[in-house]
Amino acid sequence: MTALARPQPRILPGFSLSMGITLLFLCLIVLLPLSGLLWQLGQLGPGDYLRVMSSERVLAALRVTITAAAAATAINGVFGLILAWVLTRYRFPGRGLMDALVDLPFALPTAVAGIALVALYDRSGWVGQLLEPLGIQIAYTWWGIVIAMAFTSIPFAVRAIQPAIEELDRDEEQAALTLGATGRQMFFRVLLRPLLPSILTGIGLSFVRSLGEFGAVIFIAGNMPYETEIASLLILIRLDEFDYPAAAAVAGTLLALSLVLLVAINVMQNRLQSYLRSEG
């Protein structure tokens, strides 16, 4: 006779309550809106989906969005790493202010950021004025989109990388120093590898954020169909036309792309940190 296995009493109390609240919250805030999107997508046959997605304008919007997001992410990867390094490693007057500034793009309404960027980079703006004689135009071009995306997503890169820099073992750096490593060798052989998982997270979040960015971009983008029209604007336009399935198709594609990226980053991160596990 085997008795029904009784679940072992848990050591840490409060599991069912906190888990219940967590699930409820997740459903209401995250899953419900997403399922709305999926339902809309469901109205759409594969043929319709392909028709929407293969339209020249949608493809152009996706290309603009993805290339600009990639460029913004590359910029944020490099400068986010430097910024995180400076904020973590050095003590200087104004460090606290600088640290707070990094979070500003989180706090600022993105539309305000967009308008501010236009004011700066427009032909009559401070920076735009200087670039105009050189024949460089940023506002209302692809570069404007890149700058707006970089602005709104830089905190993700910096905040993801900072803790990893704090966790670096200073003794390892000193060891590398005594073994004769130059600054460059120290960076590429000793420091970069342990930071890689966090850099990956940072640029991954930054990229995904840039893909969906709307407010900051539309002011500076110019929004010319086929040229400087981003995917999330196209979604809005389709919604305005009451073409919900088309909007859902583009939105669903962006969402799927983001999800795949986030999962891939997670998997890669696990691989990258395998050296920390104690079993062979």
């Binding site: 073992d169 003794d171 390892e172 000193q174 060891a175 590398a176 120093l177 005594t178 073994l179 004769g180 490593a181 130059t182 000793v190 590898r193 342990p194 050296y275 920390l276």
Partner: peptide, 19 residues
């Protein structure tokens, strides 16, 4: 500079490169 002295150092924490 430390790197030019060619002194071998064994640290208290060993400071092995973890990766």
């Amino acid at each position: 500079p430390a790197g030019k002295r060619r002194f071998g150092m064994v640290f208290q924490s060993y400071a092995l490169f973890r990766h």
